[in-house]
C-alpha cells in the first residue's frame, strides 16, 4: 500500500480524534437517544474502544476492494463488537438503535474523505464505496451478535421458567410429586422428566405422582410424554401414578385411542396419594385421609 493512499486506514491514523468526535456527534443526533439506558460517557468509551480496534486492524488488513472480514486481523474488532452488543442487549437497547450505533460510523468517515479527496471525485466515490462495505460488515456482525445474545437470553428465561413451573416436591417419605400447570410442550415435558427422575434418585422415592389437574389440554403429544415419563420412572425402579385425570381428560384419552398400559391413574391428587401410601405400606386411616 502506497503511503500517500487516502483511505480509512490512513485517516484513522492521521485524524483519529476528529473521526471519533464526529462519530459521537452523529450518534447524538441520530443514534441512541436513550441516555437513561446507556450514558453519554459509556457511549463515548464504547465508541473509542471500537474505533481503536478498527484502527489497529486496519494497519494490517486491507480496507479496499479486497476487504475480508474473515481475516484473523479483524478478530479484535469482532470481539469488541461482540462485547458492546452483549452489553447493549442486556440493557434492553432496541435493534434499530444497535444498528444505528455502528452504521453512523460511515458518516464520520465520509467527512474527512470528502475533504481530502475533493479534487479527485473518482477516488472519492471509490473510497466511499469501500468504507460503506467495511462498515456494513461491522454492522451486520453487530446485529448477528445482538440476535444471538437475545436468543441466549430467551433460552435462559425459558429454562428458568420451566424450573419454577414444575417443582418436584417430596410429599412424604419415599413419595415425590410434581404438579403440572398450563401447557406441556416438548421442551417442558423433557425438563419435567429430568427433574422428576433426578428427584427419585436424590429422595430414594418409590412412588412418583404426576398431577395433571392444572394442565389445560391433553392431546396425543402430551399423553405420549406422560407415557414416556411413566416408563422412565419404572425403569429407575419407582412406580408412577398420574393423578388429576378429569372426566373430560379421560374422555379425550379414550377418543384419541391412547392406551396407558402399566400406568396407574387416579381422579385427583388425594386418591393418587392414597394409592401411594398403600404401596409404601403407610396406613391412611389415622387422620381420616
Amino acid at each position: 500500500m502506497a503511503s500517500d493512499t487516502i483511505d480509512i486506514a490512513s485517516i484513522l491514523k492521521s485524524d483519529f480524534e476528529k473521526i471519533l468526535s464526529a462519530w459521537l456527534r452523529v450518534q447524538a443526533r441520530e443514534g441512541i437517544k436513550r441516555t437513561d439506558i446507556i450514558s453519554a460517557e459509556e457511549t463515548a468509551k464504547q465508541s473509542r474502544d471500537l474505533l481503536s480496534a478498527i484502527a489497529r486492524a486496519a494497519e494490517d488488513a486491507r480496507v479496499d476492494r479486497e476487504f475480508d472480514f474473515g481475516n484473523p486481523a479483524w478478530d479484535g474488532v469482532r470481539q469488541t463488537l461482540g462485547e458492546i452488543s452483549k452489553n447493549r442487549t442486556e440493557r434492553g437497547v432496541s435493534p434499530t438503535e444497535m444498528a444505528w450505533f455502528v452504521s453512523s460510523l460511515k458518516q464520520a468517515f465520509f467527512t474527512p474523505l470528502r475533504e481530502l479527496l475533493s479534487e479527485e471525485p473518482s477516488k472519492l466515490v471509490e473510497q466511499i464505496t469501500d468504507a460503506t462495505r467495511v462498515v456494513d460488515n461491522f454492522a451486520l456482525h453487530a446485529f448477528d451478535c445482538y440476535v444471538q445474545e437475545r436468543e441466549a437470553i430467551i433460552e435462559r428465561q425459558q429454562s428458568e421458567m420451566t424450573e419454577v413451573s414444575a417443582p418436584v416436591v417430596k410429599i412424604w417419605d419415599r413419595i415425590v410429586t410434581v404438579p403440572l400447570l398450563g401447557t406441556l410442550d416438548s421442551f417442558r415435558a423433557q425438563t419435567v422428566m429430568e427433574n422428576l427422575l433426578q428427584a427419585i434418585v436424590e429422595r430414594e422415592a418409590e412412588v412418583a405422582i404426576i398431577d395433571i389437574t392444572g394442565v389445560s389440554t391433553v392431546d396425543t403429544m402430551v399423553a405420549q410424554h406422560l407415557l414416556k415419563t411413566a416408563a422412565a420412572v419404572r425403569l429407575m425402579g419407582a412406580e408412577c401414578v398420574i393423578s388429576g385425570i378429569s372426566p373430560k381428560i379421560a374422555q379425550t384419552i379414550v377418543h384419541l385411542g391412547v392406551e396407558l398400559p402399566n400406568v396407574v391413574t387416579r381422579v385427583d391428587l388425594q386418591s393418587g396419594l392414597a394409592y401411594a401410601f398403600e404401596r409404601i405400606g403407610v396406613s391412611t386411616r389415622l387422620n381420616g385421609l
Binding site: 427419585i200 434418585v201 430414594e204 414416556k228 422412565a232 425402579g237
Partner: peptide, 27 residues
Amino acid sequence: LVGMRPAVAMTLVELGMTLSEIETALN
C-alpha cells in the same frame, strides 16, 4: 434390575426400549 441412572432411563425410553418384562428397584 437396579440403579439405572436418570439419563439412561430417558434414553432407553426414547429408543422405545422399556424393558417391561424386567422387574426394577431403586437400589
